[in-house]
Amino acid sequence: MKPSEARNHRAMAVLPLLALTMIVVFWLSLNVGSVNSRSGEVWRIIWGAAADANLDFIVRNIRLPRALAALGGGAMLAVSGLLLQVFFRNPIVGPFVLGISSGATLMVSLVMLTSVAVGMVGVVPYLTPLAAFAGALGAMSLVMAVASRVKQGVTLLITGIMIGYLTSAVTSLLITFAEAERIKGFNLWQLGSFSGYTWTELALMMSIGSVLLVLVYGISKQLNAFLLGENYAATMGVNIRRFRIALVFVSCGLSALVTATAGPVAFVGLAVPHMARLAMGTSDNKLLIPATALIGAVVCGACDIVARMLFAPVEAPLSAITSFFGAPVVIMLLLRNRVKQ
């Protein structure tokens, strides 16, 4: 048996298993919550049979969007992280390394901490997600402008980090002069959560997100060439500049979509690609991309369940759960890798 066949056999076993796990997580996510519900009832509600109106609303408009958002958001963050890890050839890079979340945070802090947007609160629908998306897009276009000019990927990485620092500096300045009462809401946003998705937001995130995920598959060939480094990729026929712009667009687009609607969710984008590599036993991105998306969905969905059940009805901060879970995983995997070499 050829090694590539062995790899494909493993993928054929692992991918469906992951998909199945994802469905289980999804079902659990619909069933657990601080309001009691029996799974039979939830099942009937999903299929449109009227039950308790209250529960019906909760399952259809609170749990269902939240479950879908957690799964989709997790997949998108993880794939975004994978792209950047391969591109920068750096295992500790995550989707926010190019300043996407910092840009979003800056705009949200402008809206929430200053009186700039007081008149718009509750008047402009989706004010916070719109602000976050604007900030993420701003950071993204800045990074893309840089991406089209620099020669080396590492310059781009440093630029991204610097953009992050700059926007964080402005944000902390805004915090200094903000009233205590306003900071409460801002802190809440900074923690990130899949709570409270509306169907509109979800539809938007999912539709643009899936277009981007398809685009990711379109650059998977070049991404594989990048496993040998930027120079080798170039000599194998990759148009580095065009590829870099495409990659930044897709990866930042994915993380911007999630950040805008859920706030910054830590560690999923960093830890999951490592888990995917371990599960698939390969760095071949054509297999890693679907595995990363599925594991991202499972991890984020599971962490979201933990976040809402751990101290129910109090919500535990999602980023704390993902970090608590993700940091040891990354340490473990990197140590393993070190030992292996």
């Binding site: 919550g33 601080s34 309001v35 209250n54 609303f57 909760i58 609170i62 749990r63 939240r66 409460k184 809440l188 959560s193 709570s195 409270g196 809402r308 129910a312 009805p313 109090v314 919500e315 901060p317």
Partner: peptide, 11 residues
């Protein structure tokens, strides 16, 4: 003040 689950707040 604590964040609670939206569904609990709603119900």
């Amino acid at each position: 003040c604590l964040e609670i689950a939206l569904e609990r707040f709603y119900s």
